[in-house]
Write a protein that binds this DNA or RNA. Structure first.
Lengths: 100, 100
DNA sequence: TGCATTAACTTTGTGATACAAAGTTAATGC
DNA sequence: GCATTAACTTTGTATCACAAAGTTAATGCA
């Protein structure tokens, strides 16, 4: 039986899952890029990013020169947590496709 | 880019996802069996089952003889929706594991 | 010098909902 | 007829996703 208690609630939410997937697929994303791709409001996006930072999955890089630009990326711990989350998804896919 | 809008919100919630996974892996489950396996309260479990029924993913079979027993199973539409949901999970796993 | 513009926020309000606890109904078996 | 059990229903609470609007600070152009 799959242990659904292990399913990371922070990652599992749709908005944050899409953020995590993007960050995992490519190193760094600007706030604006995430916003454009995911079509989220400023408030919603920043809130999700904040909660991902709070649990230590995401960090930021600030541009020093020019207009203020913030880039978001996964931390080591974020990569690990996401990997584990994907492991669980794989289990679900496998079990769900078995159709016994 | 993965289309996260297609991610079925009814299925995606942890509790209902675990129910759907169980129902997909084996034909019929008694209310009691689901409750024991998933360690949910009566109220929580029945509420999730109701919302799955409401969207037509789950149906019931009642025992006619003996103590009242209700069995839950996926409908055709539920199987289809779950399959599509799993398709999206697969995309996420694939993209997430690519680590470009 | 100052004004419009833009990025990245913060604040606030609302509606939805996961979940637990406790109560209800109806049937069984002793 | 009384305790027990399955399958609910009802109710309350706390969380949280999301949008809208306001804030701050920096830029570049008039």
């Amino acid at each position: 039986m799959i242990d659904f208690d292990k399913l990371d609630k922070t990652i599992h939410e749709k908005g944050r899952l899409s953020i995590m997937t993007m960050l995992a697929s490519r190193g760094e994303w600007k706030f604006q890029e995430l916003k454009d791709q995911l079509k989220m409001s400023d408030g919603n996006l920043i809130t999700h990013l904040r909660s991902l930072q709070k649990v230590g999955y995401v960090s930021t890089k600030k541009e020093i020169k020019g207009r203020k630009i913030t880039k978001y990326l996964l931390t080591r711990s974020g990569k690990k947590a996401f990997k584990e989350y994907l492991g669980l998804l794989e289990q679900i896919v496998t079990q769900g496709s078995s159709e016994s």
